[in-house]
């Protein structure tokens, strides 16, 4: 596998891509499609951010063990989506983020989105789902120490990640339908989505409370046992 050993080059790439490619997409969006096409810009930015992360991951040396554990968490997440009344995507993403780090959390969220959409339907919304779930896992990794300790921070995190997912997806819904941001439509989309948002929030908090100890404990134990 090609690994960029030189740290400086790697850092330059890391800075260059978000500061050159993403502005380029914005400029193209303004000139080729009329400047009102925020939908194009947001789609390209979402795609590029996911790609950036995946490419960054490619360049890093990850132990085979950690990689396999992440794929298992992805498969568990997708399998969980088929169990009736059981929507543990965010809960498992957050738990992975807490115990295996933010990068693993991002991967579980993003890959669960791609794979479950093989069954539930791919579309232009896939990159946004990848980004939203990925970010939830990434941030959970950053806040790992806090979330590991108490139940209340975990419940609060589950609550806000449910809201976050709904808010991000509705921004995309409005942009796609209307091309520009329209606050009336956005509020309307949020209002119609309230039942779904409520399901997200409740199932996030519920499954985080229930699954954190058994699944987190198993992850911790397996990392200890096999020195991952």
């Amino acid at each position: 596998m090609v690994v960029i050993k030189n740290n400086r080059i790697r850092n330059i790439i890391k800075i260059l891509i978000p500061f050159v490619l993403i502005p380029a997409a914005v400029v193209v969006g303004v000139f080729v499609f009329d400047d009102r096409s925020y939908a194009f810009i947001s789609l390209v930015v979402a795609l590029l951010s996911v790609l950036l992360f995946v490419a960054g991951f490619e360049k890093r040396r990850t132990g085979t063990g950690r990689m396999a554990i992440v794929t298992i968490m992805v498969a568990l997440t997708v399998t969980g989506r088929f169990v009736p009344y059981f929507k543990p995507v965010v809960a498992l993403t957050v738990i992975t983020g807490i115990y295996l780090g933010g990068e693993a959390g991002f991967l579980v969220g993003a890959m669960a989105a791609v794979i479950s959409n093989f069954y539930f339907g791919q579309g232009p919304w896939t990159p946004f789902q990848m980004l939203a779930w990925g970010m939830i896992g990434l941030v959970a990794g950053f806040m790992g120490e806090v979330l590991k300790k108490g139940r209340i921070p975990l419940a609060v995190y589950g609550f806000f990640s449910g809201l976050f997912f709904s808010f991000v997806m509705d921004v995309w819904t409005v942009l796609w339908y209307n091309k520009t941001m329209d606050w009336n439509l956005y509020v309307e989309a949020l209002v119609t989505a309230i039942p779904f948002t409520a399901i997200y929030v409740i199932s996030n908090v519920f499954y985080l409370m229930i699954l954190k100890k058994p699944i987190g404990g198993k992850l911790e134990r397996i990392c200890l046992k096999y020195r991952l």
Binding site: V54, V74, I115
Partner: peptide, 21 residues
């Protein structure tokens, strides 16, 4: 073509799903 490692992980997860079921 974009990332062999990401692709390997995707195909491993895809194989795990029927196994887990």
């Amino acid at each position: 073509k974009v990332s062999p490692k990401f692709s390997l992980m995707l195909s491993m997860s895809l194989r795990y799903i029927p196994l887990f079921a």
